[in-house]
Nucleic acid binder design. Structure first.
Lengths: 124, 124
DNA sequence: TAAACAGTTGAGCAATCGTTCAACTGTTTG
DNA sequence: CAAACAGTTGAACGATTGCTCAACTGTTTA
């Protein structure tokens, strides 16, 4: 056991918690709004339907009916999810006649997914 | 309207969808297991309690009781979430006496959060 | 060995989520 | 203008989620 580990144990071997450590971590914690915004953002990626929509749009701009046909979802379900994606600034839309075409709005999407793929490929 | 846009519209102005586009997007879609694994991974970040735990552990290795005190959660609630984080290989644990110390297990965590922060800072 | 502490676990509950369904808006075309 | 099509929306539903509570395991110490 090295010094760092010994130090940590001293700080939690007592009562219910060690005030010093707790205070330090508390002070360093970002504002509750920040963590809430972050988790809300990741919630968008935390659904397989939305993930599949993002992959499809990564391929090419698509209208809702093609999107729903490609993914085997109803237009309504797709539309509900697109609304969610739009609210989070991940897709952009443009109307052209009867159709509304959606596309990826943010280059961060690819980066984030890439890191996730890396992580998943390492955990076996 | 440029050529690319005209091309897209031709493909969806017809019946219920345009088979060619749908077929192409379908063919390019990753396996359903892949998108499910990805969204499952992001689900982990999609909760503010887990996000706060990750931020705390990013600061330093912590035992469950200090973690729960720092975040104002019950030990039980923290433990449930740690179980989830452990299952996704995002935290590692080591027992030392009565305490079990948790720490971040993956360098991808910081990268992913960093990109999310960037994204959020741009959308105003 | 018994008491005290650290942490885990499973059942149960309230809240949230994603889908379906039906009704709606908006655009094009006969 | 009416019919047809593309897409949106809100209510309602079943499923999932995160927490609480209580009972449990495992470690230390008196």
């Amino acid at each position: 056991m090295n010094d760092k580990e010994k130090d940590l144990e001293m700080q939690c071997g007592c009562e219910h918690e060690h005030p010093e450590v707790v205070r330090e971590v508390r002070a360093a914690m970002p504002d509750e709004n920040v963590t809430a915004d972050l988790s809300d953002f990741f919630k968008v990626f935390g659904d397989s339907s939305r993930m599949r929509i993002l992959f499809a749009l990564d391929r090419r701009e698509l209208c809702v009916c093609d999107l729903s046909a490609a993914l085997g979802m109803t237009k309504s379900a797709v539309s509900h999810q697109l609304r969610f994606l739009r609210a989070n600034h991940l897709v952009a839309s443009r109307r052209s006649g009867k159709n509304i075409f959606y596309s990826l709005a943010d280059e961060h999407v690819r980066d984030i997914i890439e890191i996730a793929v890396e992580h998943l490929s390492e955990e076996d």
